[in-house]
């Protein structure tokens, strides 16, 4: 009886899983995660797996000394799955990106990665 009860739950779960939203994960980024780019990029763009709430989604970009190098606030593009922020002119070096986003189903996720600007 216990197994039967559990088994009847599975279809509902699988159907629900197909219909629901999930935590927003970073799908890919430009500049690429861990990559090297030249010339220096003018923006950082992040593509996520879910739609985002703009008021609670941020990107910070810092240089090797920890100084902020992004320009303005992060803004959503496309179908609210792309978060983008402008950059100040970047000399060659290593830069860190720290993002925190809120998906439309109110889950917070965050991550950080670095990229390099070559000569």
């Amino acid at each position: 009886m216990r197994l039967l009860a559990l088994a009847t739950v599975l279809p509902a779960l699988l159907f629900g899983a197909a219909a629901a939203h999930a935590h927003a994960q970073l799908d890919h980024a430009s500049p690429r995660v861990g990559g090297t780019v030249a010339p220096a990029p003018r923006t950082v763009s992040l593509w996520f797996t879910e739609k985002l709430e703009p008021a609670f989604s941020t990107i910070e970009v810092t240089n090797a000394a920890g100084a902020r190098v992004e320009q303005g606030r992060a803004r959503l593009g496309g179908d609210r799955t792309v978060l983008q922020v402008g950059l100040k002119p970047l000399p060659p070096g290593t830069y860190s990106v720290h993002w925190r986003v809120l998906s439309v189903d109110s889950h917070v996720t965050e991550g950080r990665f670095s990229f390099q600007v070559g000569q």
Binding site: L13, G16, A17, A20, H21, A22, H23, F56, T58, R100, L102, D105, S106, H107, V108
Partner: peptide, 24 residues
């Protein structure tokens, strides 16, 4: 992950500390 499948019902804590909006 029930919090993703049913984010507004059984996927939430019974007694949530806020309305779902995070503290940054």
């Amino acid at each position: 992950y029930l919090d993703d499948i049913f984010p507004t019902t059984i996927g939430r804590p019974l007694f949530a500390s806020n309305t779902g909006r995070p503290t940054f």
